[in-house]
Design a protein around this nucleic acid. Structure first.
Length: 427
RNA sequence: UCCCUGUUAGCUCAAUUGGCAGAGCGGGUGGCUGUUAACCACUAGGUUGUAGGUUCAAGUCCUACACAGGGAGCCA
């Protein structure tokens, strides 16, 4: 039996295969909290109901000992989740000695050093299940709308955006880089399949040391042929709304475990506020920020903007030059590009960056030259503007930042099983 | 890369002006029939990050280094 199905077994015999999470003893009665990966369940053993030898063995159980427990599921209001297992027998698979993570406080450094064990803790368990639900909801959303999942390469010959620092590897004697974005490849795929997305790891060798950066993180990047800039933002609104509702519905218990106040999440629904970059500047100036046309926003600025609306907010029409080379200038306002960032509320900052892409061959070539990028490297990318070019666009959403926001975590390192941070690669 | 703060028992932290190295959790032993990070009693556990220096005396002051945490820039 899986613990999360215990409600269907009330009054019946059941076997739980799992680990001891914690135990308490009152002399003649034992309370053993077991976990089995699907949940946590209190098991009770009374001295006068079992053999002395069985009781003694159960009493000596230590934290994280692996066990197979047999007994009867019974409804009981005194138990944490309303039902519990009355134990008849408990078999020890391996007796654990000196498990490092005790039921009291630990520091982040110690927990990260023991990340392989920390994952077993209730809070980390809940977060990983929330992450899974979020990823599943993202995929469902796109699959239900006729998108094709196209996996992008991870080893790439050159920088996708040409700005950030990349991890270099040796590719049969040639330099190769770990991908920092699948977008350019998705543009090619969108010309073949119409509506596509990729979902995979991306790598940035930036020496960022903040609560919102990992060197290896997961990004979902849809790309759509013939989409307009407005339709693109609408798609993002619908996607975020779908994912939030799905997680609120299907991961309520886990959100309770991590004590997430979901009242702001429940208010997330289209349309999201959309402000021009120049309007964002005005808001920031009212808050006493010295920002000028052309500046990009720091985390403090993003928080001010998001707090102004208490909903995810789009900031769009950034100045040319503040954004990547492939973004399409707005014909109505040629000093701005058709790009939008989505800022999450509650101080989580930018979770999506999206744009309309340049679809004109000559303009793209000009931008590549302006940015001192290699024409030869981008020959295939230019080809897309040579053979049946169409208006198109897409966006990239950072999974860890999205999880951190939905779960209201203080740091993205808890959103992924084994985070890769500046200078850290253990475990 | 820069700025700030730390490093004392396996873990989380105390230690007054520079003057005897302490507690909780975890481990061990015993007690307790409804516990909720259970509780109670007893018990073991220390080269105070490393290397120097000042001093009658350094966990405490100074210098360097290492490691950890927080923040900035860059970004998702």
């Amino acid at each position: 039996m899986d613990i999360n199905e215990a409600r269907n077994y009330i009054g019946k015999e059941a076997t739980i295969k799992g680990w001891v999470y914690n135990s308490r003893s009152s002399g003649k009665i034992l309370f053993i909290l077991l976990r089995d990966g699907t949940g946590f369940m209190q098991c009770v053993m009374a001295k006068n109901e079992v053999e002395d030898e069985t009781f003694a063995r159960a009493k000596a159980l230590t934290q994280e000992t692996s066990v197979i427990a047999r007994g009867t599921i019974r409804e009981d209001k005194r138990s944490p989740n309303g039902c519990e297992l009355t134990l008849k027998e408990i078999e020890i698979i391996q007796l654990t000695r000196d498990y490092p993570i005790t039921p009291k406080d630990h520091g982040v450094g110690f927990l990260m050093e023991n990340r392989h064990l920390w994952l077993r803790s209730k809070r980390q368990w809940a977060i990983l299940r929330i992450r899974h639900q979020i990823e599943r909801a993202f995929r469902d959303f796109f699959d239900n709308r006729g998108f094709t999942l196209v996996d992008a390469p991870i080893l790439t010959p050159n920088a996708c955006e040409g700005s950030t620092t990349l991890f270099q590897t040796d590719y049969f004697g040639e330099p190769a880089f770990l991908s920092q974005s699948g977008q350019l490849y998705m543009e090619a795929a969108a010309m073949a399949l119409g509506k596509v997305y990729c979902f995979g790891p991306t790598f940035r060798a930036e020496k960022s040391k903040t609560r919102r950066h990992l060197t290896e993180f997961w990004m979902l990047e849809p790309e759509i042929a013939y989409i307009t800039f407005e339709e693109n933002m609408k798609l993002q609104e619908d996607m975020i709304t779908y994912v939030i509702r799905d997680v609120l519905k299907n991961r309520k218990d886990e959100l309770d475990i991590i004590e997430r106040d979901t009242s702001l999440l429940e208010k997330v629904e289209p349309p999201f506020p959309k402000i021009y970059y120049k309007e964002a500047l005005e808001i920031l100036k009212k808050h006493g920020k010295a920002v000028e046309w052309g500046d990009d926003f720091g985390s403090e600025e993003e928080t001010i903007l998001a707090d102004t609306f208490n909903k995810p907010v789009f900031v769009h029409h950034f100045p040319i030059g503040a954004k990547a080379f492939y973004m399409k200038p707005d014909p109505e306002e040629p000093n701005t590009v058709l790009a939008a960032d989505l800022l999450a509320p509650e101080g989580y900052g930018e979770i999506i960056g999206g744009s309309q892409r340049i679809d004109d061959y000559d303009l793209l070539l000009e931008k590549i030259r302006e940015n001192n990028l290699s024409e030869e490297d981008y020959r295939w990318y230019l080809d897309l503007r040579k053979y049946g070019s169409v208006p198109h666009g897409g966006f990239g959403i950072g999974i860890e930042r999205t999880v951190a926001w939905i779960a209201k975590l203080p740091h993205v390192r808890e959103t992924i099983s084994f985070p890769r941070l500046l200078g850290k690669i253990y475990p």
